[in-house]
Amino acid sequence: QGDIVVALYPYDGIHPDDLSFKKGEKMKVLEEHGEWWKAKSLLTKKEGFIPSNYVAKLN
């Protein structure tokens, strides 16, 4: 089961498979690959890669 993270900063995706998000948006982490994680937005239901240093895990 994936962790839920919250965006600390907004992110505008650079690549087509990036997931753009707004500050405060919550996402479910699907896979962790070093600095880039695959996640699904709980708001938009879209999936893509996010920079892990832009988010914090919720406990």
Results as ranks from 00 to 15, higher is better:
53 N>C: 13
54 Y>K: 07
16 P>M: 08
21 F>L: 02
23 K>L: 08
44 T>W: 02
4 I>N: 03
59 N>F: 11
22 K>N: 08
49 F>H: 06
11 Y>A: 02
8 L>K: 07
3 D>E: 13
49 F>V: 07
47 E>F: 07
9 Y>G: 05
26 K>A: 08
28 K>Y: 14
50 I>H: 00
8 L>I: 09
17 D>F: 13
41 S>W: 03
9 Y>D: 03
57 K>F: 13
13 G>E: 04
49 F>N: 12
57 K>S: 09
46 K>H: 08
25 E>S: 03
43 L>Y: 10
51 P>E: 02
50 I>A: 02
18 D>Y: 14
21 F>Y: 01
31 E>Y: 09
49 F>D: 04
56 A>E: 12
41 S>V: 03
17 D>E: 13
18 D>M: 12
22 K>D: 08
37 W>M: 15
10 P>G: 12
42 L>A: 03
35 E>P: 11
25 E>G: 00
48 G>Y: 01
47 E>M: 09
16 P>L: 08
26 K>I: 15
6 V>Q: 07
2 G>Y: 11
32 E>W: 11
56 A>K: 13
57 K>C: 08
51 P>A: 02
59 N>H: 14
50 I>K: 01
43 L>E: 09
34 G>K: 05
5 V>E: 01
10 P>D: 15
13 G>M: 06
29 V>S: 01
2 G>S: 12
23 K>Y: 08
25 E>Y: 01
38 K>L: 15
45 K>F: 14
32 E>S: 11
31 E>S: 12
55 V>C: 08
17 D>K: 11
41 S>E: 03
36 W>Y: 11
58 L>E: 08
54 Y>W: 06
57 K>Y: 14
40 K>S: 09
12 D>Y: 13
58 L>N: 06
51 P>K: 05
17 D>C: 14
57 K>Q: 08
14 I>D: 08
5 V>G: 02
43 L>H: 10
25 E>W: 04
31 E>N: 08
33 H>D: 09
57 K>M: 09
53 N>I: 10
58 L>K: 06
39 A>R: 00
1 Q>T: 12
47 E>I: 14
55 V>P: 02
48 G>I: 02
33 H>Y: 12
50 I>S: 00
15 H>Y: 11
9 Y>W: 12
58 L>P: 07
58 L>Q: 08
9 Y>L: 09
42 L>E: 06
9 Y>A: 08
50 I>V: 08
29 V>E: 00
11 Y>K: 03
26 K>M: 15
56 A>F: 12
34 G>N: 06
21 F>V: 06
41 S>A: 04
48 G>F: 01
24 G>P: 00
38 K>P: 03
52 S>K: 15
9 Y>T: 06
24 G>M: 03
6 V>M: 08
18 D>C: 13
35 E>D: 12
25 E>P: 00
53 N>R: 14
53 N>P: 05
20 S>G: 06
46 K>T: 06
39 A>S: 03
44 T>L: 03
18 D>Q: 15
38 K>W: 15
41 S>D: 03
15 H>A: 10
23 K>A: 11
53 N>L: 10
19 L>E: 00
54 Y>Q: 05
35 E>C: 14
14 I>N: 09
4 I>M: 07
35 E>M: 14
36 W>V: 11
32 E>Q: 13
36 W>P: 04
7 A>P: 00
2 G>C: 13
56 A>W: 09
47 E>N: 05
25 E>V: 01
11 Y>I: 03
12 D>P: 10
59 N>M: 11
41 S>Y: 03
48 G>W: 01
19 L>D: 01
22 K>L: 09
8 L>Y: 03
5 V>Q: 02
4 I>T: 08
8 L>G: 02
38 K>G: 02
19 L>V: 03
7 A>I: 02
30 L>S: 05
37 W>K: 13
46 K>N: 09
34 G>A: 06
6 V>R: 05
44 T>S: 09
58 L>M: 10
57 K>T: 09
53 N>K: 13
23 K>V: 10
9 Y>I: 08
42 L>H: 04
35 E>F: 15
55 V>T: 05
36 W>I: 13
32 E>D: 14
28 K>A: 10
36 W>E: 04
2 G>N: 11
28 K>T: 11
14 I>F: 09
37 W>V: 09
13 G>V: 04
47 E>Q: 10
7 A>G: 08
56 A>P: 01
22 K>A: 11
10 P>F: 08
56 A>L: 12
26 K>T: 10
6 V>T: 06
3 D>I: 15
6 V>N: 02
35 E>V: 13
56 A>V: 15
31 E>D: 08
45 K>L: 15
39 A>E: 01
19 L>H: 01
1 Q>D: 12
44 T>D: 05
27 M>P: 01
19 L>Q: 01
33 H>T: 09
37 W>Y: 15
28 K>G: 04
58 L>A: 07
19 L>N: 01
39 A>L: 06
3 D>V: 15
17 D>H: 12
36 W>K: 12
9 Y>Q: 10
58 L>S: 08
36 W>G: 03
40 K>Y: 13
15 H>G: 14
1 Q>R: 12
41 S>R: 01
24 G>H: 07
26 K>F: 15
15 H>L: 09
9 Y>K: 11
46 K>I: 07
31 E>G: 08
38 K>H: 10
52 S>C: 12
52 S>T: 07
42 L>G: 03
30 L>W: 05
11 Y>T: 01
40 K>C: 13
13 G>D: 02
47 E>V: 14
43 L>I: 10
54 Y>P: 00
3 D>L: 15
36 W>T: 09
1 Q>P: 13
49 F>P: 01
27 M>A: 00
44 T>M: 02
6 V>F: 08
58 L>C: 12
2 G>I: 10
4 I>R: 03
8 L>P: 00
20 S>H: 07
35 E>Q: 12
58 L>G: 05
11 Y>H: 05
5 V>R: 02
26 K>P: 07
4 I>D: 04
39 A>H: 00
29 V>R: 02
14 I>K: 13
40 K>D: 01
16 P>H: 09
24 G>N: 06
50 I>P: 01
38 K>R: 13
40 K>G: 04
4 I>P: 02
23 K>T: 08
34 G>I: 04
46 K>M: 10
52 S>Q: 10
56 A>H: 09
1 Q>A: 14
49 F>Q: 06
47 E>C: 11
27 M>K: 00
5 V>A: 06
5 V>C: 11
